[in-house]
Computed example of a mutant assay.
Amino acid sequence: MKIVCNNKKAFHDYHIDKTMEAGIILNGAEVKSLRAGKANLQDGYAGIKNGEVYLYNMHISPYTFCTTSAADPLRVRKLLLHRQEIRKLIGKLNEKGVALIPLKIYFIDKGKAKVELGLARGKKLHDKREALKEHQATREMQRALRHNE
């Protein structure tokens, strides 16, 4: 599994309740650009429209060596999920404060691009501060352990 990009900001801004894997429909130049690692998930989110799941605001830079006209880097991309999974998502997304956020994009062994989606609830400011304090405390403990060895 080759990871193309991670959405580190999502773990800072949201509590991730559940994750799932989805396929993504791309054109040829977008696949080559993803293999080069030129994608950004920072402002991306997924939504359901007409019973299908779409990915919005995910930026894939145009492939530099493409001979045809480049597609829009921010175009809406369709995600591939089973019908039962989409039904479950519709039920979850109807709750207040729940969003569907892309967490990472990666290639599986067969060469297909996949997106890991997370059902997320927004964090409050004090939750973000507590998470940063815990992260710093664990870092300091790891440093102390390394220096003692």
Rank of each mutant, 00 (worst) to 15 (best):
T64E: 15
E21M: 09
E149I: 15
L103Q: 00
V31S: 03
A10M: 00
A70C: 07
H82Q: 05
K133S: 07
V76G: 01
I48M: 02
A99G: 10
T138L: 15
N27Q: 14
K8S: 10
V98D: 00
K9M: 05
E85W: 05
A46I: 00
N6I: 03
K96H: 15
R121Q: 06
Y63N: 05
V76I: 07
L100Y: 02
M1Y: 09
K49H: 11
N6Y: 15
T67V: 14
K133L: 15
G51K: 14
K49M: 12
G51M: 05
G28L: 05
C66H: 10
V98W: 03
E116W: 02
F107E: 03
E130M: 11
G23T: 01
R143D: 11
G97V: 03
A144S: 10
Y14M: 02
L103N: 02
R129D: 13
L132E: 11
A71Q: 15
G44K: 08
Y63T: 02
F107I: 02
A131F: 10
P73Q: 01
N7V: 04
I108P: 11
P102F: 04
I90Y: 13
D43T: 03
T19P: 03
K124C: 03
M1W: 06
H147Y: 09
I108C: 12
A144I: 05
M141P: 02
D17A: 08
E149F: 09
E140Y: 07
K92S: 14
A131T: 03
T19C: 08
H147L: 13
T68A: 12
K8N: 14
I90G: 09
N7D: 09
E95Y: 12
A137K: 13
L80I: 13
L41V: 00
E85K: 08
G97I: 03
K133H: 03
L89I: 01
V115S: 00
A71W: 14
I25W: 10
T138P: 05
G51Y: 12
K128P: 09
L93F: 11
P73C: 00
Y63F: 07
H135E: 15
V76T: 09
K92L: 14
R87E: 13
A10S: 12
R83H: 11
L145I: 05
A71S: 14
I48V: 02
P62N: 03
N6T: 06
M58A: 06
T68N: 14
E21P: 08
Q84M: 07
L41M: 04
N94V: 09
K128I: 07
K88C: 08
G37E: 00
K2Y: 10
F11S: 08
K38G: 00
F107N: 01
V98H: 03
K49I: 12
Y63S: 03
I108W: 12
K38H: 08
A99M: 13
N50H: 13
H59F: 15
V115K: 00
D72E: 07
I48Y: 02
P102T: 04
P73K: 02
I108Y: 12
K114W: 06
L80G: 04
L80W: 08
H12D: 15
